[in-house]
Every structure is written in structure tokens, then in C-alpha cells.
Design a protein around this nucleic acid. Structure first.
Lengths: 239, 239
DNA sequence: CATTGATTGAAACGTGTGTTTGAATCGGTT
DNA sequence: AACCGATTCAAACACACGTTTCAATCAATG
């Protein structure tokens, strides 16, 4: 009789997961309380223990149930096949990533939880990294490598991909700073499209310049020595 | 008789601030306990209340006492005057920012606390943003505006500066991801220098391309309409 | 040495938390 | 109807935490 929110969802499990996801994203795992979650979901406190074991189990269920839905809803390639030019695929990748993170019409709490996992990884981080981040990053790396004209496993490709991702993530991770420095502009679809256009243009120019400069060698001494150290972590280098 | 760490610091205040900073950075404000902090500092629990009022006061003292020291120790311009070319100043800015965040020989917990403040601002965020972030961002914005050939208050300059900062912050905020995707490489001085060189090169190429494309107008319809909306937040636009 | 204010010490307090309990209720099956 | 497993409920439990208390100790001053 006391369903406060999430009334559109049937079943205590589904309501709990939905409400808990928002609460974990807003407050963080430690500051989010199971009492507040259950009250918002209109569910008894014991339901957490009964359905998910404990608070950590509920958190695990939130993350694991959502990142696959996000991936299915907005595939990173946006339906573009590999026959399209790499420049176009890069633009779609950037726009998709920004929309998935910033568009306020989405259940955007997944990206916020991921931002928290970055600064303080929990037990779900490894799986999230392997199943969600790594495949998309590999796809992006292939695109930038094609534009640069270097191998996808080269140091240059890795760092160039990092640069593209970094530009996008900034608007999510540092949203509080952006809103304080340039206040008043929300993240509606048009604003996100403007950001995507800028990031794409800036990245494309940088990548093309790297192609002209040559993939390796022609960039000074530090660069070559740098590459040798880059892959010194484990024997096989990369998966 | 029981000083566990930070014995080199005299005075309970100094020991508390130092230990608490590391603890807040590692665990976060909620997960860090005053008991653990005081035990590590070799200080009685009541000292927190006596010297700082409460846990939040200790946190405030940590942040406010450190970001000014960081700024004094590594000025963002690196001693370069405005007579040097903008390209050189950009490289120094990027290298300084990366070293301050990544170099493991520094008391690097300030950057980690700032990353936490991004995803979950507390009461110290506004002051930190105004006194620490905004001045450095304004300096960077001036540099990139000079390279682009646009006004420092233009949308292009803001977003270009965001792109530069985003590339740098990625290595700090997403360190866990970087270490899982390319494991084994630490952030010693040489590695940081390599990253700085890449970010500088990629950014410079992007900025130069924007100058050639023209500051405004010549880039399609969305760009101009975009600018009108960018500064619609408050009347004066910017400080 | 005696006095006084500042600081430290050990212990306890109150509160909010995640978790558990055991009875009550529901939904389907025999 | 009677039964039974699954689920829900109100209440309580156990614990860790931030905070407070008040006596003990220290350092300077007369």
C-alpha cells in the first residue's frame, strides 16, 4: 500500500534494483542506506537480504543488470559497418558515448556509478572493465589506428584512444566543474551534439597530424624508448 | 609512546592533517574512520574534536591547507613568462599538470581527493574550484585561445581547453582502467614525460587545425547556433 | 613550588547502520 | 479445505562509528 516510487515496475526485485541504482549513483555505496532504498521502493527492509543476500549483493545486481542493457540500447558502432570510412565511425562513436553518459533522458546513473568505480574500484570493477569498457575501447582503438595509419597495438594507438575517451569523460566526471565555470547550460540533446562535434573535430585533426608525422621513429628519441617501456608489464603485451 | 607514523611531524595538528589526507584520499570521506586516522597518527581520538571540531572540520583543514602548497610548489606556468610562444607554454602547462597528478614522489592524495569532489562535491568544492581550478583553467584558456586565434571567452576556447584538461585528467581519474588495459607500467617521471609529450602533440595539432578552419562561422550551421546557447546561463556570461 | 590554562588520555555515550529473526501473509497444489 | 513453499512484515539485534565527558598531564607564569 505504500509504494512511493517505481510503481511502474512489478516485483520487489525490479523495484529494488531500479531505486538502488539511482541511490548508489547519487550517494555512493557507503552513504546510500538500505533503509532509504527500501522506503523509496515501497519494500520491506528484509527484502534486500532475502533477494540479494546483503547490501553488496544488491549493488552487484544493479551494475551487472544495467551495463549490458546500456550496451544493447546504444551499440558503440551505432549500426555502422566497417565498410564506412574510419572518420565517420569515429564521429558516431564519440556521439554515442557522450549521449549515453550525458543525455538526461537515459537512466544515466550507470555512468555515474562507473565514475565512482574509477576512483574507488569495488568487486564489480574487474568484470565491468572486461565486459563493458575493454570491448568498446578495442573498437575505438581500431578506428584511431586506421586514421593514424599505425597498428592497433601500437603505443600511439593506445594513447590516441585514451585522448579521445578522456575528452568525452571529462564532461561526465567533471560535470560539477563545468557547471561552475560555465553555469546554466544543461545537457540536452542539442548541447550534447555540439560537444560531440567539437570533440570529433579536435580529435580528427590530432589524429591526422599524427599520420603525417609518421607512426614511429620520426618523432625524437624519447618516443622510441617510451614504446619499449610501454609494454613491459606482462609477457604477452595485450589480449 | 605510540606514534605509529608521521613521526617526522611535530604537533598533533600537523600529524593529523597529513595522515587524514592520505586516509580521506584512499577510503573517501565516509569510509575513512577517525579511529584509524588517530591510531595511524599516534594521537588520541578526542584530538580531532579538540583541534578541528569534528570529522568534517578535519577534512576541510586537509584540503584547504594543501592545494595552496601544491600551487606554490608547482606553478602552472612553470616559470615561463608570457613572452614565450604559446605552444611552449602549452607544453609546460600539460607537463606540470600531469606531474602534479601522477608523479608518485609527490603527496599525490590531493588530486585523488579532488577526483572524489568531482563525482560528489562537498562543502569544500566551491572554494577549491574558485581558488585552485578556475585560475589555472583561465590561464590554459588564454594559451589555447592564442593558438587558435580566437577570443579567450569564445565557446571554441572553452571547449578546446576542456579537451586538453580532459586528456590529462583521464590518466588520473581512470587510472584503474589504464592499469587493467595496459598493466604493469607505473607512473614514474619518464612515463609521465611520455604521456605529456603525446598529449601536447595531439592537442597542438587539434588547435592548429581549428585556427586554419577559422574561429567562427566557417564550420557549419550547428556551430553558430551552438554558441548562442552556450552563454545563455547568466547574463554576464563569465567572470 | 603553586597556579592556571592548554592539551592529552581512557572510557563511555548515543546514534545510525546492516543484518537477522520469527511470525504473518500470499499463491498455487493436492 | 488443507497444505506448503515462497515471500513479506514489524521488530529487534549487534556492531561500528562520531562524538562527548571528565580526569590526568603538560607548559608556562607568578
Amino acid at each position: 500500500m505504500a509504494d512511493r516510487e517505481a510503481e511502474h515496475l512489478v516485483g520487489t526485485r525490479a523495484r529494488l534494483v531500479e531505486v538502488a541504482g539511482e541511490e548508489f549513483a547519487r550517494r555512493g555505496f557507503a552513504d546510500a542506506t538500505v533503509r532509504a532504498i527500501c522506503e523509496r521502493a515501497g519494500v520491506n527492509i528484509a527484502a534486500v537480504n532475502y533477494h540479494f543476500g546483503d547490501k553488496a549483493g544488491l549493488y552487484r545486481a544493479c551494475v551487472q543488470s544495467k551495463y549490458e542493457k546500456s550496451l544493447a540500447h546504444r551499440p558503440p558502432e551505432g549500426g555502422l559497418g566497417p565498410e564506412r570510412p574510419a572518420e565517420e565511425r569515429l564521429g558516431v562513436f564519440i556521439a554515442t558515448m557522450l549521449e549515453r553518459m550525458l543525455d538526461s533522458s537515459e537512466p544515466a546513473w550507470l555512468a555515474r556509478i562507473m565514475a565512482r568505480e574509477m576512483v574507488q574500484p569495488t568487486e564489480v570493477f574487474d568484470e565491468m572493465c572486461d565486459h563493458f569498457i575493454r570491448p568498446q575501447f578495442a573498437m575505438l582503438r581500431g578506428i584511431v589506428a586506421e586514421i593514424i595509419g599505425a597498428e592497433a597495438e601500437s603505443v600511439t594507438a593506445y594513447r590516441a584512444a585514451y585522448s579521445v575517451v578522456g575528452q568525452c569523460l571529462f564532461y561526465k566526471h567533471c560535470r560539477a566543474v563545468v557547471e561552475r565555470i560555465t553555469p546554466g547550460q544543461g545537457y540536452d540533446l542539442a548541447a550534447v551534439a555540439g560537444i560531440a562535434e567539437h570533440v570529433t573535430r579536435m580529435s580528427l585533426a590530432g589524429l591526422r597530424a599524427m599520420r603525417e608525422a609518421g607512426a614511429d621513429g620520426a618523432a625524437g628519441d624519447a618516443w622510441a624508448a617510451d614504446k619499449a617501456r610501454f609494454f613491459s608489464g606482462d609477457g604477452r603485451g595485450m589480449s
